[in-house]
């Protein structure tokens, strides 16, 4: 049980690295301004993560539907 949890947090960190990479290129297109996130950037990142996951689900669903 505990091992499963640890694997989960481990893979969550790895997944976060990939997601941050993707969303960084999406949400920070201009020059770097300031060292803190502003409201629009935070919103963009949250949307980016959620839409990425939506697409993930959609991809799996679509591939599944192609099998039948």
């Amino acid at each position: 049980m505990r091992r499963a949890q640890e694997n989960e947090t481990d893979s969550a960190a790895t997944e976060t690295h990939q997601l941050t990479q993707v969303c960084w290129t999406k949400c920070f297109t201009g020059n770097v301004s300031g060292s803190k996130l502003d409201k629009t950037e935070e919103g963009c990142l949250a949307n980016c993560v959620n839409r990425f996951m939506d697409l993930n689900l959609l991809t799996v669903k679509h591939l599944n539907s192609m099998r039948h």
Partner: peptide
Amino acid sequence: SCATSCMEKYMAAWNKVNSSYIDRL
């Protein structure tokens, strides 16, 4: 100076992405 603020921003973004991801899960 761009690089240092970029690093801080990237780490803030990392944290935000991580919490959003965990929320979603």
